[in-house]
């Protein structure tokens, strides 16, 4: 097993959580109701907490003296290894919920699987994240049903959200080369798809939404290939650290 592979694996997971946590942070002050302000913030905090633990571990694996903030704030888009699904913009509440449903639909199975990793550190992070992602999925599923089977307008918006994000779901189950080097440590992503299909289909059916056809699927996130949104997001997120390098805050 190469150190590089483990570093990149953990970094990719950290990037997934941070990018999605950042996106949810953009909802603060704009949520459809006060209770949802608190819910979205809770999810964002869970994700950022997971990201921090993973960045800290990645930095230790690398052993080059970088810390969590160096990794988060001083890497460019091509060095970010997150899945493309999480970098998609929030859109309206329907699209945000769709992104949550599709992503948490995966993590609610991914983290429990990673809790069995031969890497004790990853197993520890995963055990905590498993509880959190179970809640994230429940929250997303409840909202998907209410928006899908609510009004005509809410169904249309929810369907549009699911349709728009479907092309990013293929990547959730595509194993990377690094994962192939990490048997026993990494999760077999492809094996998660069957469970994900069942969970998503169940929610979509109850929500009276149509499952989009599997067509072309986006890929490349784990190789640092992203769409055009991530650059803008990182520019905003990293501004202070880039403008004032090397300072404590």
């Amino acid at each position: 097993m190469s150190e590089g592979a483990l570093f990149r694996y953990v970094l990719g997971l950290a990037d997934d959580q941070l990018v999605l946590g950042h996106r949810l942070g953009e909802w603060v002050g704009k949520a459809p109701m006060l209770e949802e302000e608190l819910a979205l913030a809770n999810i964002a905090l869970d994700l950022i907490g997971q990201a921090r633990l993973l960045y800290q571990y990645a930095a230790e694996i690398e052993g080059a003296g970088r810390g969590e903030d160096d990794l988060a704030y001083r890497r460019d888009e091509r060095a970010y290894l997150n899945l493309q699904l999480v970098e998609q913009p929030n859109g309206d509440f329907g699209q945000t919920i769709a992104r949550q449903l599709l992503y948490a639909g995966m993590t609610q199975a991914f983290w429990p699987a990673l809790a069995g990793s031969a890497d004790a550190r990853l197993a520890g992070v995963a055990a905590k994240a498993a509880k959190e992602s179970a809640y994230h999925f429940r929250h997303a599923a409840l909202w998907t049903v209410r928006l899908g089977d609510g009004t005509a307008e809410s169904r249309a918006r929810m369907q549009t959200g699911v349709d728009a994000l479907w092309e990013f779901t293929g990547e959730l189950f595509a194993p990377s080369d690094d994962e192939a080097d990490l048997a026993g440590v990494a999760v077999d992503r492809a094996a998660l798809k069957v469970g994900w299909d069942a969970a998503i289909d169940r929610v979509l059916a109850e929500a009276t939404l149509a499952r989009p056809a599997d067509d072309w699927m986006a890929s490349g996130g784990r190789q640092g290939l992203h769409g055009e949104h991530l650059g803008h997001m990182l520019a905003e997120m990293q501004f202070l650290q880039r403008a004032y390098p090397g300072l404590a805050w």
């Binding site: 704009k30 949520a31 459809p32 109701m33 949802e36 309206d92 509440f93 049903v145 209410r146 928006l147 089977d149 609510g150 009004t151 307008e153 809410s154 918006r157």
Partner: peptide, 13 residues
């Protein structure tokens, strides 16, 4: 205003 359709959906459901 942006949240109106969400609240309406929750009530309708």
């Amino acid at each position: 205003d942006d949240g109106q359709w969400v609240r309406a959906a929750a009530a309708a459901h």
